[in-house]
Each structure stands twice: as C-alpha cells, then as structure tokens.
C-alpha cells in the first residue's frame, strides 16, 4: 500500500479541484451566460463526458484473459437490456453486475 502522506495529498488535491469546479460557475454566472461557447459546451459536455467514461469502462474489460471478457460482456448486455426495458438505473446496474459476478466467480 502506498504511504499515507501520498494518499492524503492526492485526496486533498482531488477534493480541492472537485469543490472548486462545483463552486466556480456560481461565482461567474453572468459571464458564462454571455459566452456562447460555454453555453454550447454546457449543452454538449454532459453527454460527451459520460460517453467517454462508458468507453473507458468498456475498455477495462480483459478480452485476452482466461474468461475472454465473457462475464463483463454478458453484464453489459444485461445492463443495457434492463435499462432500455425498465429505465431504472439501480435495477439495471444491479442486474448487470449480478450476472457479471456470478459468471466471473462461479460458472466459468
């Protein structure tokens, strides 16, 4: 395990940046409202950022490993299917993760 000073420093940096990002727009609301570019970024970035996060998550699947990514692949399909069907985020995540865990630990 890395030493405690490093973890504390990394956490402090992460918290400071996160809080600053959350606070800044309240301080410059008028300015941002007038900026057409920031307005467009505000419209596009929420979907853009989570799409990249999804690609990142999918890329962590290890297709070359012993199980060839089968548990995760099945989990993704179950997650999408549940989410298209029921639109309930908690249910979709729980169902997909359960399938992945069962396949990863028991079946194969």
């Amino acid at each position: 395990m890395p030493d405690a000073g490093y973890i504390a420093a990394a956490l402090a940096i992460g918290v400071a940046i996160t809080v600053a990002l959350r606070a800044i727009p309240f301080g410059m609301k008028a300015l941002v409202r007038e900026s057409a570019l920031l307005h467009d970024l505000g419209r596009w970035m929420p979907l853009g950022a989570v799409t990249i996060l999804a690609v990142y998550g999918l890329a962590t699947i290890d297709f070359a490993g012993g199980q060839h990514g089968v548990p995760e692949g099945a989990g993704v399909m179950v997650t999408i299917a549940f989410h298209v069907w029921r639109r309930n985020a908690v249910l979709s995540i729980a169902a997909g993760t359960a399938v992945c865990l069962v396949l990863a630990n028991l079946a194969l």
Partner: peptide
Amino acid sequence: GLKGMGFLLTALFVVLTIDAF
C-alpha cells in the same frame, strides 16, 4: 477473493450514458 466488482463502474457509466442520451 471476489472477481469482477470493478464491473459496477462500467455498468454505472453505461447507464448514465443511456440516460444522458
């Protein structure tokens, strides 16, 4: 010893993407 717990994160991002879309 449980494998595959990190998948929760992938599932979360997939769901958030569908919702954002």
